[in-house]
Structure formats: C-alpha cells, structure tokens
C-alpha cells in the first residue's frame, strides 16, 4: 500500500479511504479521530468522534455535551480497528489528553502526530516516539531560530519581575487550554504559593485539570470586586491573550503585560503586542526537538504540515530523508 492511499489531505481534513475516517477534520464529517482539544483540531458537529477520554471531556466542556452524536474513548496504546485499519493513540505531550494517532494497514504505518512537544510537561503525559513508515509532523516552529529556552528559567524571569515591581499586577497571557495550566503548575513548581488570579474563561478548564490530578494551588477569579480591594498588586493574573487587549484588563492598575508563547522568541512580535515581559513557553516542539524527533523515529518519509514547512522539508532533504509538505488548511499558529 502506498502511503497516500492510507492517508490523504482533503478539504475536510486528513482522510483515510480504507478506514473511512478523518483525523482532526475542519468541517463536520461522519467519523472523526481527534488528536487534542484545541479549537482548530477539535471542532463540534461530527457524527462520531474517537479521542482520548480527556480530549472528549475537554470537547464537552468547550462545546457542550452534544458536540457529537456518538463518542468513543481511545485508551493510550490500545489497539483498535476501524474498517480493517489498525488505529492506536499515543501521548503527544502537547496538552492534557493530546495524542498522536497511528494508522496502519497492509504493512504501511503512518503516525499523525497532531501538535506535539517532546520536553517534559507537568500537566500532560510525555511524548512517545512511535516507529513508523511515514511521520506526519507539525511545523509551527520549524525554523532554526526557534529554540525554546528552559521552562524554569522563563518562570524565574516572571518571578524576578514580580519581586522587582511588587506594586504592579503581572498579567500573563496564556492560551486557555494547556498553556494557562502549565504556567500555573510551573509557578507552583518554582515555589510560588500565592493565590493566582484567573480570567473567567479559564475557570472550567482549570477545574478540569485539578480533577485529573494536576494540582494548581490556590486560584481566585480576577473580578472587579477583588480589584477594588487592591488585591492585584504583586499578584499574577492569568488570562487568554485576547482579554488583555480588551476592556477586561482595565481593572488592573499599571500592569506588567506578559505573554507565554513560543512566538515571544521574536522581539518584534513582543513589541507589536505591547508585551513588556515575554515568556518563551511553547506547547510545540522547537527546531531542535523537531529534527531530533525525526532522527529518532527515522521514518522513510516525512510529511510536514501547518507552519513553516519549507525549512523542515529542506532539512530532511539535506539529511537524505524523503519529505514533502502536506497542505492542510484550517490550522492556526499557536495563539495568534
């Protein structure tokens, strides 16, 4: 079997003809396999959805319990068969519940990794490299200028600024699913025990993380009531990045605006957004991690999707690995 007979891009998403299912479809389909709960990968309106239990929970939180007619849980590592195609889910290390999806038939195995990050993350299961013939990799940060620094050093940067400007609230922009909880958990790991204030949009997801055994410490809503008590001086406030450009942010006196994102590596991006303290924290693999992963898995072919495909395809070519861009539409850059 040729790999493109097993998985192929269609306008709806990545399609498996023999199994008659889509992976992360961007339009409603009959049967969807979903890698993780971010809105550009997990959309409502499919008839049947197969995903990890945590991804299904997250979709229910975001879209309501009726986001699909039929839900099926895929346990990590469990061997499933759909219309004669072998399917298995493996941890991707991206956010809670995130998985790579391995698809195999007649000796051809393709791994669609969705979004992934190999470095340890206290809020989700660690990425596992899966041997395969074709590895489908994301390319969000696929330029050699993107090398994410050590997470702890970035969190230390935030804590240092908090000590330096003790009368200013530190507003941390972080994507509501995954990044926000990771920032909070990393702060706890670095010994920050104070109450962390959160934007309303984060509440249910933070509660869900707690229910899954990820302790986030004392959290409180960043409400105007708390603001009037002057509670936000010296406090860390976490909210979705879009909220900081919004009227919501006006309750904080003279805040230091921070943004936790891999894009913060680029000074101009930080400057444009008016970010005073960029925190380079990404839930995607950086350049070194992308090439290390490909080297480890050693697939005979690499398909590169969403991001800077050209650079990663070029790197594969210089290493003698067959590679091509896979033009999927509808996936966004992280938190942009």
């Amino acid at each position: 079997m040729r790999p493109e007979d097993l998985l192929q891009p269609r306008p709806e998403g990545l399609y498996c003809p023999p199994g008659d299912f889509y992976i992360d479809p961007v339009r409603p389909v009959e049967r969807a396999l979903v890698t993780h709960g971010h809105a550009d990968h997990a959309r409502p309106g499919n008839v049947r959805v197969l995903a990890t239990a945590q991804t299904l929970d997250i979709m229910a939180i975001r879209y309501g319990a009726d986001f699909a007619k039929e839900r099926q849980v895929a346990a990590l590592g469990e061997a499933l068969t759909i219309n004669g195609v072998d399917v298995s889910f493996h941890p991707a290390g991206h956010v809670l519940g995130s998985a790579q999806i391995a698809v195999a038939k007649d000796g051809m195995k393709i791994v669609a990794s969705g979004d992934y990050k190999p470095r340890p993350d206290p809020t989700c299961a660690a990425f596992e490299p899966i041997a395969c013939d074709v590895f489908i990799t994301e390319a969000t940060f696929a330029l050699p200028v993107f090398r994410h620094p050590d997470d702890r050093a970035e969190i230390q940067k935030l804590l240092r600024s908090l000590r330096q400007f003790p009368d200013r609230a530190h507003l941390v922009g972080a994507y509501a699913l995954g990044k926000a909880q990771r920032v909070i958990r990393l702060l706890r790991d670095e010994g920050h025990e104070d109450t962390i204030y959160i934007h309303g949009a984060l509440k249910t997801l933070c509660d869900y993380y707690e229910s899954q055994g990820i302790a986030l410490g004392p959290l409180a809503p960043a409400t105007v009531d708390n603001a009037s008590k002057g509670a936000f001086a010296a406090a860390i406030v976490v909210g979705p990045p879009s909220a900081f450009a919004d009227r919501w942010a006006r309750r904080f006196p003279d805040p230091v605006s921070c943004f936790a994102s891999g894009w913060m590596r680029v000074r101009q991006r930080a400057k444009q957004r008016g970010v005073e303290l960029p925190l380079i924290l990404s839930d995607h693999a950086d350049w070194d991690e992308l090439v290390d992963t490909i080297t480890t898995i050693a697939p005979s072919e690499v398909w590169v999707t969403h991001g800077r495909e050209e650079a990663l395809v070029r790197w594969c070519e210089t290493k003698g690995i067959r590679a091509r861009p896979l033009h999927l539409i509808g996936y966004e850059d992280e938190a942009e």
Binding site: L143, P144, F146, Q268
Partner: peptide
C-alpha cells in the same frame, strides 16, 4: 556554521539580521 538556505529562510521570516544571528547561532 549553518545551512545558508535555512539561514535565508529564517532571516526572511524575522527580518532582523542581529536577531536572526543571535537565535540561529548553533
């Protein structure tokens, strides 16, 4: 030290020479 094609792609993306060199330096 680095593949000139990858350097060119990176420089093109960032648009700032000092920043590109600082980040890409192996």
């Amino acid at each position: 030290r680095v593949d000139p094609v990858l350097f060119a792609l990176s420089y093109d993306y960032l648009g700032d020479l000092a920043e590109t060199i600082a980040l890409i330096w192996p």
